[in-house]
């Protein structure tokens, strides 16, 4: 569907973009860099301007998408970049959210403080649990992280200080700095969520470009080879896991800044599964692809489903199935201009 839509109007960006996907990533291509900067700038501008013309409900939706997208990026850091598929990031997402909520209720409504405490708590839990979890890999790692997610979920379900199964309610509206004016309006809260999202994306991008990022891709592309070369992969995996945990925690604080409520249902298996599938849908390994994946998943589930009484799950199911066949490399890997290299017989 998307392929045929993008048929007309070829652009320079596409031509270079398509060929650059196999390139080594040296910095001697000024033109695509320029184009990507323009694209990035355009996207930022749109994101920042949203509260000027979106009503409170859609702006809240946009904020939830950004918070969820940051969770998805943290999943991608492990799944796509490091090759460790995970269902456990909801545990750290929840940790960040609950920590932020508790800080808000019992200490201070400062969003900055909540962000710091939430991400630190999540990173710490990720360090402790990751220390054992990253010893495994592949589908076993997937199941161990599923266990981590479910255990935290069930703990939250019965732990009275966070409201147990009823959820943590009564979180006061955030202010930016301690003692500041509380932000009540959806647009301002959205800007804070956007700030957290961009900060998280910046961290993720820096990590991916750093030597650590290179090692992470090394783990994905051939852990055995690295072992043979005498490289330790355990510290790389643990570092990636901890950073991803911190990012998921930051996403949790952003989520709760908006909803001012968090319940065990927010870190259930379905959220974990949708986060992982958003990565696959968007294109594992790129950072922006999964963001689009998250955007599509939440939009279909929360917005489109309002128009098809109770059919949100059906729409998601159809979306997933169609995406597998039409976008073999996810949204990020889609060819927007040319048809696929090997034209398929099936799809018209």
């Amino acid at each position: 569907m998307m392929r045929s839509k993008a048929q007309p109007r070829p652009s320079a960006a596409d031509r270079t973009g398509a060929s650059a996907s196999t390139g080594g990533g040296r910095r001697h291509l000024p033109r695509p860099v320029l184009v990507s900067r323009v694209a990035l700038g355009l996207a930022l501008l749109v994101l920042a301007a949203l509260p000027l013309f979106l009503a409170p409900y859609p702006i809240g939706l946009a904020g939830r998408i950004l918070a969820f997208a940051l969770l998805v990026v943290s999943v991608d850091l492990l799944t796509g970049v490091t090759g460790m598929p995970t269902l456990g990031q909801v545990a750290y997402f929840g940790t960040g959210a609950y920590a932020a909520g508790l800080v808000g209720i019992h200490m201070d409504s400062s969003a900055v403080l909540q962000l710091l405490v939430g991400s630190a708590a999540a990173a710490l839990l990720a360090l402790l649990t990751g220390a054992v979890a990253v010893r495994t890999s592949g589908i076993v790692f997937l199941m161990v992280t599923l266990a981590i997610g479910e255990l935290v979920h069930r703990f939250a379900d019965s732990f009275a200080p966070v409201g147990a199964s009823n959820g943590l309610a009564g979180i006061p509206p955030i202010s930016i700095l301690p003692g500041g004016e509380p932000l009540e309006l959806a647009g301002f809260i959205y800007w804070w969520v956007l700030a957290v999202f961009l900060l998280g994306m910046a961290v993720a991008t820096l990590v991916v470009k750093s030597p650590l990022g290179r090692s992470m891709r090394g783990v994905r592309d051939g852990e055995k080879r690295l072992h043979a070369l005498g490289q330790q992969t355990y510290p790389v995996k643990l570092a990636a896991y901890t950073i991803a945990g911190g990012l998921a925690g930051a996403a949790g604080t952003a989520w709760v800044a908006q909803t001012r409520f968090f319940s065990p249902g927010d870190l259930g298996f379905d959220v974990a599964a949708f986060a992982l599938l958003s990565v696959v849908l968007g294109g594992a390994g790129t950072l922006w692809g999964p963001v689009i994946g998250a955007f599509v998943v939440i939009l279909v589930r929360d917005w489109l489903s309002a128009y098809v009484d109770g059919r949100g799950a059906l729409m998601l199911g159809v979306l997933f199935v169609v995406a597998v066949y039409t976008l073999p490399r996810g949204i990020a890997g889609a060819r927007w201009r040319k048809p696929l290299r090997r034209p398929r017989r099936t799809s018209p």
Partner: peptide, 11 residues
């Protein structure tokens, strides 16, 4: 496996 997961969960 991940795309299989996407497909079969969709189903």
């Amino acid at each position: 496996h991940l795309r299989q997961a996407l497909l079969t969960l969709g189903v």
